[in-house]
Design a protein around this nucleic acid. Sequence first.
DNA 1: GTCTATATGTGGATAGAC
DNA 2: GTCTATCCACATATAGAC
Lengths: 187, 187
Amino acid sequence: MLNRHPDKRSRLVDAAVRLVHEQGFARTTLADIAGAAGVPLGNVYYYFKTKEAIGEALVAHHAGHYATLRGQWNQSGDARSRLAAFVQMTADNRAVLARSGCPVGTLCAELHKAGGPLAEQTGAIFTELLGWLEEQFRALGRDTDAADLALHLLSALQGVSLIAHSLDDPEYVDRETARLTGWIQTL
Amino acid sequence: MLNRHPDKRSRLVDAAVRLVHEQGFARTTLADIAGAAGVPLGNVYYYFKTKEAIGEALVAHHAGHYATLRGQWNQSGDARSRLAAFVQMTADNRAVLARSGCPVGTLCAELHKAGGPLAEQTGAIFTELLGWLEEQFRALGRDTDAADLALHLLSALQGVSLIAHSLDDPEYVDRETARLTGWIQTL
DNA sequence: GTCTATATGTGGATAGAC
DNA sequence: GTCTATCCACATATAGAC
C-alpha cells in the first residue's frame, strides 16, 4: 500500500466504514459512499477497481483498528485490567451498538452469507481477537481452559451486541457488560 | 389467516425460509424462491403482494416455530432440564449454525439495518424467548437476577452462533454449549 | 387462479473527454 | 488524475391473456 492518494482514498474508506456499519454492505451503494466522501461517482473507480475492493479496504480498516487497540492495551496494566478494558469498550459503545450493532459482527454475518474471499478476511478479525483474549486468560493462570474462556467472553459480547441491536435498546449492553466485568474480577 | 391456499403458499414460505437462511433476505430473489418452490415467478404475487409480505410470513414462521418448541418444553421436566434442552438444541444444530448462522439472529441483524416494520417483528422473537428463559430461571429460585441470567444465556448462544458462522467451524458451538450446559447444572 | 411477457427502477461498472 | 454520461444486468412488480 503506497498510499499515494491519502486524501480522497481515506475519505472514501471512512465514508464506507460509517455507511456500511449503518446500512450494511449490500444496501450501501457506491453512489452513497461517493456522495458522503464528496467524490464524483465515476472517480471512485480510480481508487477501487470494484465494490469488493472497497470491502477489502473496509475489513483491513477494522482489522487495523483492533490491532492498534490491542497494542495499546498490551502497553499497560495486567491481564485482568486488559480484559476489563476490552469489556468496558463495549459498554462505552452502548448507544452505537444498539443502533447499528457491532461493526465487525454485523459485517461478518452479512459477508458470510454472500460468500467469497471477503468473508474469510472478516472472520480473521475474530480469530486474532480470540488469540489475544486467550493470552490474557493464560496470563491469569488459566492454562487449561484459556481458549474456552476467550470464546465465552467474545460470544457474550457479540451476542449482546446482536440482541441490543435487534431490540434497539442499549440497556441490554449495560446489563451483560456489568455481569462480565464482575465475572472477570472473580477469575 | 384463512389459509385457503395451503399447498403453494406453504411451499413458497418453506422455500423462502431455507433460502433466506442460506443467502440472506436481500440476496434471495423472488425468482429464487419461486424456482425452489416450483411456482412460476408471476404467480408469486397472487400469494404475496410484495417481497416484504414474504418477509412477514417468514418471521411469523420462525416465531411460530419457537412458540411450538416452548410449548413442548413446558409440557415436561423441570426448569433446569428445560434450559438444558434449549442449549442442547443449539448444540444439535452445530453443522447448520456453522454454515448459515442462527436463522433468527442473522435475520434480525439484516432486517434491522434495512429498517422498517419487519425489523421490530423479528426482534419480538428475542423478546419472547427472553421472557420464557426468565421464567425458567425464576423457577430455579433466581428471582432477583432471572432477567440477567436469561440475557446472558441468550447472548452466549447467539454470540457463539455468529462466531461459528463467521469462522465456519462447528467446534466453537460444541465448546460454548458444553460450558453453558455445565453452568446450568450449577444453578 | 395461473402463467408469460414486460415495464420500471436501480446499481455496478465503463467509455472517453478533459 | 478527474469527472460526465451512459451501458448493461438484474430484481421487483405489473399487465393482461388464458
